[in-house]
Design a binder for these strands. Structure first.
Lengths: 336, 336
DNA sequence: TTGTAGGCGTTATCAC
DNA sequence: GTGATAACGCCTACAA
C-alpha cells in the first residue's frame, strides 16, 4: 500500500533520496538520513514495487520455465535447478505447464514475454515434423529480439542456445551395457510416438544392437513415457516366447511399470530377465533400477545462470554428459 | 520493444484508442479502427507490458506458490493444481522452494509481495513451537493488509484461510484399517521431528491404537519423510523380535523405503508383514502400496480459485476429505 | 466513436 | 548529500 512517496514524506526527505537508500544505490547518503528512511520504511511496512522498478529499469528479475508437467519428476528436478539459481540471484521463477502442446507453449511464452521475463527455459522435448514448430520458432525469435533470453533443454532447433544430453548416445550406452553383460535378445519399449527424444533414443538403441551384430527385427515395441505404458508393454512381451534376455525402456517410469508386470508374472528380475531405464529419477534409486543418469538439475541451473549472467547470447549448443547408473535390475550372464 | 504508443502511431490513432482495442475493453470502437489497430499490433509484434498494466490496474495477475521442494511429488501435484486454474484464468504462477525454512518462507513471501502477487499459497507444513512463526504470521498479515490474499494448505495458524486435510484423522483411519484387518502389533515410523504434520499423524495413530486397546509402548519409531528414513527405520525394526504385524509410515516415500528394506531382508509383504503409507502419490500406485488418498491437486486448484475469484477473504478453515486407498501391501489376518 | 491528460511507483538525470 | 523532475507503458476518466 505505502509507496516510496509516503516513505519519503514520513522520513522528511525527497523521494529520490528515499529511493537511493531503499534500492541500495551507490550514491552517498548521510548515515542520519539513511537511518531515518529505513525507520520510516519499516514503520510503514514498505514493500518496493518490483513492477514499477522493472518498468523503469527494464529488468524484471523474472525468469520463466516451461515444463510439460511439473508433476513429472523429470521436470520438477529441472524446475528446482532453475529456481535455486534464480532465488540466489534475487530473481523469481515463473512456472507454466504446457502438456506437450506446442500451441500452449507459444501462449505461455507469450505470457512470460508480457511480463518481460529476463528469459525463458524450454524444458520439454519437441515433435518430429511438428506443424507448429515454425510458429514456436517465430515466437522465440521475436521474444529474443525484445530482449527475452531463451534456452532449450532439448534438441529442437529453436534458434536459441541449447543445453542438452545426447539422447542417442544415452540409449546407445545403456544398450551397450546390456550387451556387454551377455544379453543378446534385447527389446526396446519406445517412448511416445513422434517425440524427438523418443526417436533419438530408439536410434541409439538400434545403433548399438546393429553394432553388436544383433537381430533388431521386432525388437522395438510401442510404449509411452508412463508407468501404464511400461506395464502394458511388458504384458504384451510376456505373451510371446521366447522371452527376451533384457528389456530397455524409454525412460525410468516405463521401466518401473515393466518391472512390476514382469515380477507380478512370477519372473525374477534380474535372474530371469533384465530391465533398464533412462533418466535416473529418484524412483530408479528406490527400485534399484539400472539406468542412465542425466544431469537434469544442472541443466536447469545452468540455463538459469545463462539467462541471469547476461553474457554472450549466441546460440551455442552445449551437450552435457551422462553416465550409466548400474544397480540391481541387470544381470551379468555367464562368461561376461 | 514496441509500446502502445508506437502501435497507435502506426495505426494512426490515439493511444487510448489502441489501448481500448488491445486490452479488450467494453468501450465501443468502429470495426475499421479496430482492424487497423490489430493489424498494426501484429505488424510490430506488440506484446502488452503486463508490468505496466499491473501497475495501473493494481492487478498483477500473478499468483505465488510456496513449496518446500518442488521435486517432492507431494508438492508438485499441488503446484500443478494451482497452475492449472491460474493459467485458465489468465494468470501466471510464481514458484518458490523454501526447503522448510520459515525464514526463507518469509523472504519469498516478501518477494512475491514486491511483485504484487494477487495471492500466495503456502503449501508446506509448519513446525511445532517454531520461533519464527510469529514473524511469518506478521508478514502474512502485512501482505494481506496490502491486498495479497493468502491461503495455507496446512494447519499453521497464519491468520489466513486454510484448505487442509485432517491429518490426525488420516492417520487414525489408516491405523484403524490395519487393526480391522487383524493387525495388533502395529508400529509407526514417524515423520520429521517438530513438524506439525508429523505430530498430528502420530497422534492419530496413537488414538486409534488406544481406542482398540492395543499396546503403544515402543510403537513409535523415529523416521523422517524420505526413502532413506524409511529404509533405515525398517532395518532397525528388523533387528528386534518379535517383528510387528504391520508398519505404518508417516508418508508414502517412507513406506516405500521400508517396503524395500523388508523385502530385501527376505520378508514377504504382505504375507509376513503389512505396510501402509499416507498421501497416495504416484509412487504408491506403482508399488501397490496401501495408503490414504489426499486431495492434493484439489487443494492447489481450490486455493488458486479462492485467490482469483476474489470473494470474501474471511479466514475460513476448510477441511477436505480423504479416503483409504487399499492396495496390495496390507494382509487380512485370519478371521478378520 | 475518438482524443487528451493524469497518474500508477520507481529510477535516473540534472541541478543545487 | 539532497532534491526536483522526466521518463517507463499503460488504463481511465473526461472532453469533444
Amino acid at each position: 500500500m505505502s509507496s516510496l512517496t509516503e516513505v519519503a514524506r514520513e522520513a522528511g526527505v525527497a523521494v529520490s533520496t528515499a529511493s537511493r537508500v531503499l534500492s541500495g544505490s551507490e550514491h552517498p547518503i548521510s548515515e542520519r538520513t539513511r537511518a531515518r528512511v529505513l525507520a520510516a520504511a519499516e514503520r510503514l511496512h514498505y514493500s518496493p514495487s518490483a513492477l514499477a522498478r522493472a518498468m523503469v529499469t527494464s529488468h524484471s528479475r523474472l525468469i520463466g520455465v516451461l515444463v510439460s508437467d511439473i508433476d513429472n519428476p523429470y521436470f520438477s528436478v529441472i524446475a528446482r535447478g532453475v529456481d535455486d539459481v534464480a532465488t540466489k540471484a534475487g530473481y523469481v521463477t515463473m512456472l507454466s505447464n504446457v502438456d506437450r502442446r506446442t500451441t500452449t507453449e507459444i501462449n505461455r511464452l507469450q505470457a512470460m514475454r508480457d511480463y518481460r521475463a529476463a528469459g525463458v527455459v524450454f524444458a520439454g522435448s519437441g515433435y518430429v515434423d511438428d506443424p507448429q514448430h515454425g510458429a514456436l520458432a517465430d515466437a522465440v525469435r521475436r521474444a529474443r529480439e525484445q530482449g527475452v533470453r531463451a534456452v532449450t533443454l532439448a534438441d529442437r532447433d529453436l534458434g536459441c542456445p541449447s543445453l542438452t544430453v545426447d539422447n542417442r548416445a544415452v540409449a546407445q550406452d545403456i544398450t551397450g551395457h546390456l550387451i556387454a553383460r551377455g544379453h543378446r535378445r534385447v527389446v526396446f519399449i519406445e517412448g511416445p510416438t513422434g517425440m524427438t527424444v523418443s526417436r533419438h533414443r530408439r536410434e541409439g538403441f538400434l545403433t548399438a544392437m546393429r553394432a553388436a551384430g544383433l537381430e533388431t527385427n521386432a525388437a522395438c515395441h510401442p510404449g509411452g513415457f508412463d508407468y501404464d505404458a511400461g506395464h502394458a508393454a511388458a504384458l504384451r512381451l510376456l505373451a510371446r516366447r521366447p522371452l527376451p534376455d533384457a528389456v530397455l525402456a524409454a525412460n525410468d517410469e516405463v521401466a518401473v511399470g515393466a518391472l512390476r508386470a514382469l515380477r507380478q508374472a512370477g519372473l525374477d528380475v534380474p535372474r530371469d530377465i533384465s530391465v533398464a531405464g533412462m533418466d535416473d529419477l529418484r524412483i530408479a534409486e528406490f527400485t534399484g533400477l539400472t539406468t542412465v543418469s542425466l544431469p537434469l538439475y544442472e541443466m536447469g541451473s545452468l540455463a538459469a545462470r545463462h539467462i541471469i549472467d547476461a553474457t554472450a547470447d549466441t546460440a551455442t549448443n552445449t551437450v552435457l554428459s551422462h553416465r550409466i547408473a548400474a544397480r540391481d535390475t541387470v544381470a551379468r550372464k555367464q562368461g561376461c
